[in-house]
């Protein structure tokens, strides 16, 4: 076969030629068994190649790669959807005052939690927890370092690394079971991540860090990230962040219950 026929064959297989040229090539395949056989062999080879590349084991997700990916998303989103004017600062209008008071009552005092869609201003360990959830909780092959019962055996080691006694809380009451745990090294210091899973395979991660003495403690706050929510709170010894991909209300409920228990 000539090079021209080979080029037409490739272009036909990859959908790079127009309908008229495609019809011409199909007629040629009907008339010439050699071209037909080459087409079949090349199609099979391309299919196998696609499958082989798809099946390549690129290893577990990498924290630094995920961090860079998030940073790139931050930079690019400004170009895709430039922010509109920031909220105006001023005295609340009467109607807004009433709405704000209701919201404060509902989410602040009564619920002891704040729900917000803005992710700016969250402590750095919370961003790390969300990133780590994305990397590990969503990974079906390498989600944890210590699986299931092995977590109990490394409790002292985790506590030593974090600098305060910690353990994996039981979330069986919410229908989620502990899958395992891992330690993460971040620029904020070591973090302990516990991964839980419900009956349908949805995962939650609870990240614990030592509370920096100079920073204030704080009640539960819930922040919505794209496709996931995080409930976080800070105590005198340990800071917590619970990340879930389901309903924000469910994340808030578990975070609220946990914060009152721990």
């Amino acid at each position: 076969m000539t090079n021209v026929v080979h080029e037409s064959l490739n272009a036909y297989i990859d959908g790079e030629i127009g309908p008229e040229e495609a019809a011409e090539f199909e007629a040629r395949m009907t008339d010439d068994p050699e071209v037909r056989a080459a087409f079949e062999a090349m199609s099979r080879q391309n299919l196998q190649l696609g499958e082989a590349l798809e099946a390549l084991d690129t290893g577990p997700a990498h924290m630094q790669t995920e961090r860079l990916k998030r940073k790139l998303a931050d930079r690019l989103v400004r170009r895709v959807a430039p922010r509109r004017a920031t909220p105006a600062i001023g005295w609340l209008r009467p109607g807004a005052q009433v709405a704000a008071a209701c919201a404060l009552f509902a989410f602040g005092w009564w619920g002891h939690a704040t729900v917000t869609t803005t992710t700016s201003g969250v402590p750095e360990y919370v961003s790390e927890a969300v990133g780590a959830h994305q990397v590990f909780a969503g990974d079906p092959d390498y989600p944890v370092e210590f699986a299931g019962a092995a977590v109990d055996g490394v409790e002292d080691w985790f506590s030593g690394k974090i600098g305060v006694p910690i353990s994996a809380p039981d979330l069986g009451g919410y229908g989620v079971e502990l899958v395992g745990a891992r330690l993460l090294g971040t620029k904020e210091g070591p973090l302990a991540q516990y991964i839980y899973e419900d009956g349908e395979g949805a995962r939650y991660s609870l990240t614990l860090a030592q509370h920096p003495k100079k920073e204030p403690i704080g009640p539960v706050k819930v922040v919505d990230y794209p496709s996931r929510s995080v409930g976080y709170w800070r105590t005198a010894d340990v800071d917590f962040a619970l990340v879930g991909e389901g309903d924000t209300a469910e994340v808030q409920k578990i975070a609220m219950d946990l914060s009152s228990r721990i």
Partner: peptide, 25 residues
């Protein structure tokens, strides 16, 4: 004494940013 109120436009803008970011991610 100063307070913050969020306009409908700002809420729509925030939602737009969230959607764009989710798609980008």
């Amino acid at each position: 004494g100063a307070h913050t109120y969020v306009t409908q436009e700002a809420i729509a803008g925030e939602q737009e940013n969230m959607d764009a970011r989710a798609q980008l991610e």
